[in-house]
């Protein structure tokens, strides 16, 4: 169980995350939705401790992870894997090495510097790549792959960490609809088959509705909705996105056809917007 208690992050006078409290049971797939700038990315970065909270607490299995330092903090990051909108792979390394980077926390200094990964680790890495259907690119440099392939490499790296939680920060915002579907399907499979908790930032409503067990809506840093997709009414969506943002959120759909017509989803057939979502 991941418990967040009145978590807060302020940048000067701006409050990016404002008194957020959430309880996420193990194995849940949670979609966090909201406009860009609503504090979704900051929230994930706080959970992974890439950013320091200015207030509140994060507990995992009863341990206060917001107080961890040094080695324990790094071990927490390994248990709570993260993937990013821009994939954040090391372009100049080959794919399998990128995936094996997920083991760095499990290695000492010398064996990491010398890339002394065990046969079991290499085999695990290639199997993870194979399951994501990119094993054939294992020896290619990461930057030779397309965006969708790179994001799958990033997922394989996350799996290599053998995490309890997988945080995904706008994983499909830089991808075309087909690749976005592949990536979202992979995240759901990981959640269902491995029982890994997935917390996924999405700025489109339909994707969240189609893939997630639970939806958390954020606006100006605060949680304004928390419940199952079925409870996400048009009024609730309007509160999350504001009146102007709603059409946009609905139109950037990934799999709007795979689920029944969502309330007010009339705009979902229009062409994807070219807006680039800021993280």
């Amino acid at each position: 169980m991941l418990e967040i208690h009145s978590l807060e992050k302020r940048f000067g006078s701006v409050t990016a995350v404002d008194q957020v409290s959430l309880k996420i049971p193990d194995g849940q797939m949670v979609g966090i939705i909201g406009r860009s700038g609503a504090g979704k990315s900051t929230l994930l970065r706080l959970i992974n401790r890439l950013a320091e909270p200015t207030g509140g607490q994060i507990l995992y299995a009863g341990d206060d992870v917001s107080a961890l330092r040094g080695r324990e903090l790094m071990a927490w990051r390994a248990r709570c894997a993260m993937i990013f909108q821009q994939f954040n792979l090391v372009n100049r390394l080959d794919v399998i090495t990128n995936v094996l980077l997920g083991r760095l926390n499990y290695h000492g200094f010398a064996s990491a510097m010398l890339k002394r990964f065990t046969p079991a680790e290499r085999a695990f890495a290639i199997r993870a790549l194979d399951r994501l259907d990119i094993a054939q690119a294992a020896l290619q440099r990461a930057d030779t792959l397309s965006g969708g392939q790179q994001q799958r490499v990033a997922i394989a790296r996350a799996l290599m960490q053998e995490p309890k939680i997988l945080l995904a920060d706008e994983p499909i915002a830089s991808l075309d609809p087909r690749n976005a579907t592949v990536v979202m399907d992979a995240l759901r499979a990981i959640n269902r088959e491995e029982g890994i908790t997935v917390v996924c930032n999405l700025h489109t409503l339909d994707t969240a509705r189609a893939y997630c067990d639970r939806i958390v809506g954020m606006a100006s840093g605060a949680v304004v909705f928390d419940g199952p997709p079925a409870e996400l009414t048009i009024q609730a969506a309007r509160e999350i996105y504001g009146v102007d943002g709603l059409d946009e959120a609905l139109s950037e759909s990934v799999t709007s056809t795979s689920i029944g017509p969502a309330p007010g989803a009339a705009g979902s057939t229009s062409a994807p917007s070219t807006r680039t979502a800021a993280a």
Partner: peptide, 18 residues
């Protein structure tokens, strides 16, 4: 928990990478 048999099978399928 990767077994030797699993590793060997994967090595057979992906010889260059492993």
């Amino acid at each position: 928990t990767m077994t030797a048999a699993e590793i060997a099978a994967l090595r057979e399928r992906f010889p260059e990478a492993l």
